[in-house]
Design a protein around this nucleic acid. Sequence first.
DNA 1: TGTACATCAGTGAACGCGCGTTCACTGATGTAC
DNA 2: TGTACATCAGTGAACGCGCGTTCACTGATGTAC
Lengths: 234, 234
Amino acid sequence: MKATSIRARVRAEMTEEIKTIARAHLATDGANLSLRAVARDLGVVSSAIYRYFPSRDELLTALIVDAYNSLGGTVEERESTVDRQDHAGRFLAVCHAIRDWALARPHEYALIYGSPVPGYRAPTDTVAAAARSVSVLCRILQDAARAGVLVAGDDKPLPAEVEPEMARIGAQFCPAVPLPALSRGLAGWLQLFGAVSFELFGQFDNVFDQRDAFFAHQMGQLTAYLGLGRRRTG
Amino acid sequence: MKATSIRARVRAEMTEEIKTIARAHLATDGANLSLRAVARDLGVVSSAIYRYFPSRDELLTALIVDAYNSLGGTVEERESTVDRQDHAGRFLAVCHAIRDWALARPHEYALIYGSPVPGYRAPTDTVAAAARSVSVLCRILQDAARAGVLVAGDDKPLPAEVEPEMARIGAQFCPAVPLPALSRGLAGWLQLFGAVSFELFGQFDNVFDQRDAFFAHQMGQLTAYLGLGRRRTG
DNA sequence: TGTACATCAGTGAACGCGCGTTCACTGATGTAC
DNA sequence: TGTACATCAGTGAACGCGCGTTCACTGATGTAC
């Protein structure tokens, strides 16, 4: 029993080490990661990796799930430090957590939010991990709605085809939020990731230099658009 | 002279054919495109490609420039068919042109708006081509501003660091547009590309099915946010 | 119009690499009695 | 506590591929006189 768990622990550590090295290789190889290169860095023969991951794709999948969880965890953590009543502040914390995480781990961001890897199909394992971040947004909207401080916008009615899908998402994550407000929330989410992707993927090169301030300003505007009111400062 | 231009024309056709084949290979290989595979499909020995492109990276650059120009041209064309006074309609035409182009040529979209290719640095040749689409947006804002129909929003003041950069862009593309409105325009641009990227890169899988309607709705909302008023229907 | 020469497209072999995955194996670690 | 056996991590060789780029070359096309 004790002995088994030693072997298991070593195995877990080894698995982590492989992933850590593989993550570093994302920077140079992008998503067409080389198992042999990982094995070399690990100081092990290439076939030894197969004791831990049955194929290159499985390793990639593990990295993807880890990345989603790392991002999700960071977002949850940063958001949780903000006063619960300060919905705008909570949203801004989410925005900055995402951007900071992305700037710190650009290749992992690219792995999950960039172009799909050719020939790789993500299994559905990733869905739950992927949902962590956006569900924080939903929770903020939900809290604001229940507190009665979610400001309505001049929304156009949702198209009939879209309503059921939006309703399904709302029912799952934030039932108190009116669908038009949820729709605005998702629009904001798209803008947030549009901003981060443009910055990371080089679209701002030779255009914007003051990226911190630009991002902060854009997200500040967005907060109002989402109906979260102004940030409390005292 | 005549003879020279025949050779030149054949050369141009060959160059185009190489790019066409290479574009097709983007679908299977993504950005780590194989010269040898292109040569095979062209029915030519691999070293022959070097008569036309000095390296794999130069071929990639050509594809990137072409993609930006193709997108830019499509956007310009679609936008130009809309009544000049219908600024909202013009903006929506741009949005749909971009999404339609991206859905029709997903791998070219990924090449220019997806994760950067590892080991590849885009030369500055691409900047002009890349600016074509966004400059259409600026032109719409400019026309609306000059017509006096660009509605002001409740904008927060631009941060001091951001203002000069925004002013530079404004001066270059749309001097009549107030900077806060330009800033909102760029926010909308980010949302537009965020929406297209999420859809193309698989973030909507298992979440949204009614993507046409969802996109149309989001962009309709965005139009109002940008201060372009409602779409004219008659 | 005809000939000598220059240009240049495409060939084929080679260099020196890389890769993912399989398989029979050794030897250490853990388990059951 | 000691021994027989099972598990499993890691080895090393091999299979069958792939790649970008260089280089000396052939032979056709174009140019200049």
